[in-house]
Write a protein that binds this DNA or RNA. Structure first.
Length: 867
RNA sequence: GCCGGAGUGGCGAAAUUGGUAGACGCGCUGGAUUCAAAAUCCAGUUUUGGCAACAAAGUGUCGGUUCGAGUCCGACCUCCGGCACCA
């Protein structure tokens, strides 16, 4: 049979051009049609597409194209998260302007995206570094200033004393600046904050209704917000005999466990606490200063980690425990953070493990105030039990004791009930150039004044040269010069820029109002909320929290409706790959790209060794890690599209594991995907070449024909469920492969055989169309359809074809499989039992024993329990 | 350290609500085809014992609940993601 071979590059170029010409994926607001807004997280234009992008965008495209085939009005946009640190680093390294570098990366990556055939509406594309985009976020910010939701306060940064610049956490390696190598200092400078804490309660409660979000993400967000109910009260500073401090000093503490108040044996201040200087005794001064200095050099994560060792120092001061009026020593410790609660705690080592560890390290007394269970082998006990050693609280259980303790403090005016959150306000100032300028003017007379709306946007100059590492707008004395909008006096612009999370917090809405001369217009009302959002699990907390917060800010500004930006969320796993390394003569490790390595196996398929393809020299096999430059284990999607075509790359990206799990790269896996497409191509072509197909006569089908037709419709049902509800494209593809294997083995070719097979191939081509759209478009046409597969409807399973006359069910004796038997669907326990005990192998295991129980799982399994 | 997740054949994995563990793919072995190779097609492939029928074991470790546990509960081990200035 003379057939054209599968030639993806020819097919894909031709089909993509046709989609493009026909403007197939340009979305319009159509009243009446059910809308579906499918959004993948926008990429940072780092230079080239990597496999993580390909995986993310393939998943989004499969979902988009599937919903399109359900007849919905689908929007799938794409854009660029264009501000950020790497552009500045590239600028410093290569002496190019960040804007130029960014735009050229965008141009390159856009070509790569287009070659993968994603169904994007490119007419809505934008880059977040365009003044047309960021002007709206400046406007929003000035309005938040007026509402009191944006405010300025001192906050710490990493200061590189050599480069005279602020470093991102990522740029601090082992406490040193990554470029200068200088020991990094912590410095407090004034910065802008958004009051996300005002929305803490709503952000928390809103999670309960986000049924379409993964539980893991919701749990992480709940814990991040960290709501706790408790009481805030004062500990009066005193000397060791309990005599009050003459200055009447007191520290405020927050606790969720006031019921343990009689167990307080010391108290702790955060090293940055403002009262440290006032409270420290002369004798402890030197030690305390040293400790504060050391603590301030460390980041928070370091302080909390540090091998679990609870570092601290005595201040020389004491505080009065209001519960029993006893003086307890006051310490500084790294495990107490200024940013959480009041920056000070009462310590109850008997009921808190961190306090327990600290007490032991510093030889402080421990008093249990909750009776642990008898077999208690732990150290601190934070569970429920009767209070002990607690005067008027003794005998009460946790809830009652807590309430009584709070009432007691409130009645005496010593403290009050408080709800505390771990969540902190969002610091949006960055001391960097390549970001959205913060629209504020500082006037010597009027203070911080928002830039008036008619003067927006404050445009970031793009044609700049980097002198060293300094931000060009900070280095330029002219750029900042301006007049105060209120009094007209000479004033200066803010030279800090926004955190880039600011841009990625509202881009989803802007896609819905392209070209609008307002931030958003009524078209956003049509498309929002996002019906399916897709992105990496690494964004579970920060981005996705800011994204929800910003939506609520826009809602309160009256420009969007609804409380949440996205109803369904899918977090895909990472793309990982084998690593290979080689020790160099100078002792360093060279990482070898998997593409340059041949793997040697024994005749059972076990890996024996890996060798360089070029020289045959053996290399060490490393662990499987996230694809990265540093491990040189990345693969270039471009090369793959070149050799196999976009459909193969797309197929592999979703076929080898469930989307939320990590995807391990394998060359032979890609080969396998390609092989399947080639087989599909040849099977469908052969079927078409066999000539015209007779009409299907469902009533006339023989047993074998019915069996195939049943498989076809089972597969349609399975694939529909997998794509629509479970988002498990891997199992959907496996089901299609299974069906195609069965169909290819079906050899007889009567009129009705061919009619059944024709129905099958028509189903398979549509089921695969969201995943491998180019080959399916081509095969669809060859199957005789004139309409594009992009406007064809998804196949529906014919339930009558799925009815089976007999089922295979398992027979167990004492939970162990002993036979498989054929029964008719819906058989009763007696009917199944009769067939089961007739089986020789079943008889062997029940012979001479008493049947004490029989359990039937209808149409699945029968378990006979004997003794 | 805290929060979240994962651990299943030689490998990537599947098992949807507690009901036949290993679908599908890769690799490997044998065969067909070929002058030969590639490609393709067919068969086999968890481990152990057995010619086989079949039996026993088996889902990171230890223990528990249940007629029945990869799935639920308790303790632990290892790996991965996040921890507020990478995005």
């Amino acid at each position: 049979m003379d057939q054209q071979p599968y030639n993806p590059s020819e097919i894909e170029a031709r089909i993509q051009q046709r989609w493009n010409q026909d403007k197939v994926f340009v979305a319009r607001e159509k009243q009446g049609a059910e809308k579906f807004y499918c959004l993948s997280m926008l990429p940072y234009p780092s230079g080239a597409l990597h496999m993580g992008h390909v995986r993310n965008y393939t998943i989004g495209d499969v979902i988009s194209r599937y919903h399109r085939m359900l007849g919905k009005n689908v929007l799938q946009p794409m854009g660029w998260d264009a501000f950020g640190l790497p552009a500045e680093n590239a600028a410093i390294k290569n002496n190019t302007a960040p804007a130029k570098w960014t735009y050229s990366n965008i141009e390159h990556m856009k070509i790569q995206l287009k070659r993968l055939g994603f169904a994007y509406d490119w007419t809505r594309e934008f880059a977040t570094c365009q003044p047309d985009y960021y002007r709206w976020e400046q406007l929003m910010f000035t309005r938040l200033m007026k509402k009191g939701l944006a405010y300025r306060k001192g906050a710490e940064v990493n200061w590189d004393p050599v480069d005279q610049t602020v470093l991102a956490n990522e740029q601090v390696v082992d406490g040193r600046g990554w470029r200068s190598g200088a020991v990094v200092e912590r410095r407090s400078i004034p910065q802008w904050f958004l009051k996300i804490t005002d929305y803490a309660e709503e952000l928390l409660n809103g999670l309960d209704d986000l049924d379409g979000w993964p539980e893991a993400v919701k749990t992480m967000q709940r814990n991040w917000i960290g709501r706790s109910e408790g009481v805030e009260f004062e500990l009066k500073v005193c000397n060791e005999h309990g005599q009050p401090d003459q200055r009447d000093l007191a520290i405020r503490v927050f606790t969720t466990r006031p019921d343990t108040g009689f167990g307080v044996t010391y108290a702790v201040l955060a090293p940055e606490h403002p009262l440290v200087g006032l409270i420290t005794s002369a004798a402890q001064q030197i030690e305390v200063n040293e400790f504060v200095e050391k603590a301030s050099a460390e980041t928070e994560a370091d302080r909390l980690a540090e091998g679990g060792e609870k570092q601290g120092v005595f201040t020389g001061a004491y505080v009065l425990n209001p519960f029993n009026n006893k003086a307890v020593p006051l310490y500084l410790a790294e495990y107490v953070l200024m940013g959480y609660g009041t920056g000070a705690i009462m310590a109850v080592p008997g009921e808190d493990q961190r306090d327990w560890d600290f007490a032991n390290l510093n030889q402080l007394p421990i008093i249990r105030t909750v009776q642990p269970p008898e077999d208690w082998a732990g150290e601190a006990f934070n569970g429920d039990g009767p209070s002990i050693n607690s005067e008027w609280l003794s005998g009460l259980h946790l809830q009652d004791a807590r309430k009584k303790a709070i009432d007691w403090l409130e009645e005496r005016g010593l403290g009050e009930r408080t709800v505390n959150y771990r969540l902190r306000d969002w610091g949006v100032s960055r001391q960097r150039y390549w970001g959205c300028p913060i629209p504020v003017i500082y006037c010597p007379a009027c203070g911080a004044v928002p830039v008036p709306e008619e003067q927006l946007p404050v445009v970031l100059p793009e044609d700049v040269t980097f002198m060293g590492v300094q931000s060009p707008i900070k280095a330029d004395p002219e750029w900042r010069k301006t007049q105060c909008p209120q009094c007209g006096a000479n004033a200066e612009r803010e030279t800090d820029t926004f955190d880039t999370f600011m841009e990625s917090s509202w881009y989803y809405a802007r896609y819905c109002s392209p070209g609008s001369n307002a931030q958003l217009d009524e078209r956003a009302g049509y498309w929002l909320p996002v019906d399916q959002y897709i992105g990496g699990i690494e964004h579970a907390i920060l981005h996705l929290m800011y994204f929800r917060f910003y939506h609520k800010l826009m809602r309160d500004a009256g420009i969007v409706h609804g409380d949440e930006p996205a109803t369904r969320l899918l977090c895909q796993g990472m793309v990982v790959a084998e690593t290979y390394r080689q020790k160099q003569e100078d002792g360093t490790t060279a990482w070898i790209n998997p593409a340059d390595v041949d793997v040697e196996r024994d005749n059972e398929g076990k890996v024996l060794a890996a060798r360089l393809a070029s020289s045959g020299i053996q290399v060490e096999i490393g662990s499987v890690e996230k694809m990265s430059k540093s491990r040189n284990n990345g693969v270039d999607p471009n090369d793959l599209v070149e050799s196999y075509g976009a459909d193969t790359v797309r197929l592999f990206s979703v076929s080898n594991s469930a989307p939320e799990k990590s995807l391990e790269w394998s060359d032979s896996g890609v080969e396998g995907a390609f092989r399947f497409l080639r087989r599909l191509w040849s099977l469908v072509s052969t079927h078409v070449a066999e000539g015209t197909v007779a009409a299907l006569q469902i009533e006339e089908l023989n047993k074998d024909q019915k069996r195939i037709r049943c498989l076809v419709h089972d597969t349609i049902a399975k694939v529909s469920d997998d794509i629509a509800h479970r988002l498990t494209f891997n199992t959907a593809i496996a089901a299609v492969m299974e069906l195609s294997n069965h169909m290819s083995r079906y050899k007889s070719r009567s009129d009705q055989d061919r009619a059944v097979l024709d129905e099958g191939w028509n189903a398979i081509v549509r089921l695969m169309a969201p995943i491998t759209p180019h080959i399916c478009e081509e095969l669809w046409e060859r199957l005789g359809h004139t309409e594009s597969i992009t406007s064809t409807l998804w196949p529906e399973a014919d339930e009558s074809a799925r009815v089976k006359s007999t089922l295979t069910i398992a027979v167990q004796v004492n939970g162990k499989l002993r036979a498989n038997i054929q029964v008719s669907p819906g058989s009763t326990e007696d009917e199944v039992r009769k067939i089961a005990v007739a089986e020789i192998n079943v008889q062997r295991h029940i012979e001479g024993k008493m049947i004490c129980k029989v359990i039937l799982v209808p149409d699945r399994l029968l378990n006979i329990v004997v003794s």
